[in-house]
Simulated assay, not measured.
Amino acid sequence: MKNKKALIILLSSLLIVTVFVFEYMLPDEQTAAPYFVKMNSEGKAIKKNQFKGYAYKEKVFDSKGHAKTISFFSEKKLPKNEHFKIVVAGNKLVTNYKKVNHLPKNIQYLAEK
C-alpha cells in the first residue's frame, strides 16, 4: 500500500516537473517567431481541409536583421508593398500581424539590398 502511494506521488511529481519545463522553461521562439517583412507578392489563395486563406513565400528579417526566405500562411490577405511585423507559428501559420509604417533602420538597410 505504501509502495503504491509512493509510486503515485513520484509519477505525479514527474508529470508536474515535465509540464513546468515545457511550459515555462522553453523559450517562446521555438513555437512562434516574429519577423519583419515587406510583402512583394499578392499571395496565392488556397483552401486545405478547413483552412481558407493565402500562401506566401517571402524574404523575412528577424529582430537581429538576419534574412531568410520562408513560406507561411495567413487567413487574411496581406497587401502587396506594405510592411508588416508578423508572428509565424511552427505550423507556418501567421498567428499575429501588425502593419508598420517603416521597417526598423537596421532591417530597412538590408531589405533595400
Rank of each mutant, 00 (worst) to 15 (best):
K48P: 01
S41C: 05
N101V: 09
G65T: 13
H102F: 08
K98F: 03
I9M: 08
F51D: 04
T69A: 00
S13Q: 07
P34M: 00
Y54C: 03
I107L: 08
Y54T: 00
S74W: 03
S41F: 08
L78I: 07
A111P: 05
S74M: 06
Y54W: 04
Q108I: 00
Q30W: 12
F22M: 11
T18C: 06
K99I: 06
K47I: 10
A89N: 15
M39E: 02
F20D: 07
A33Q: 13
V21L: 05
G43P: 14
K2N: 11
L110G: 00
M1I: 02
H66N: 15
D28H: 12
F61R: 02
I70Q: 06
S74F: 06
I86A: 00
I86W: 00
F72D: 04
E58P: 09
A32V: 05
L93A: 07
S12I: 05
Y24T: 12
A6D: 09
K44T: 15
Y56P: 13
Y109P: 02
L26E: 10
F22D: 11
K2F: 05
K113R: 13
N91F: 10
T69L: 03
K44Q: 12
N40M: 10
L103K: 08
K77S: 11
K59E: 03
I107A: 00
H83G: 01
S41L: 08
L10S: 12
T31I: 14
K68W: 05
E42R: 11
L15N: 09
N49M: 14
H83M: 07
D28C: 06
F73V: 12
S71M: 03
L78A: 03
A89K: 14
M1T: 06
V94W: 00
F72W: 07
F72A: 02
K5Y: 12
I46E: 10
N40C: 06
Y56T: 09
E58C: 04
L93M: 11
S63G: 02
K48F: 10
E82V: 12
H83D: 03
K105P: 11
N101E: 12
Y54E: 02
Y54P: 06
N81G: 01
A33S: 08
K57T: 15
K68D: 06
K77H: 10
M39R: 02
E42H: 10
I16G: 09
S13A: 12
P79I: 01
L10C: 13
Q50W: 04
K52I: 13
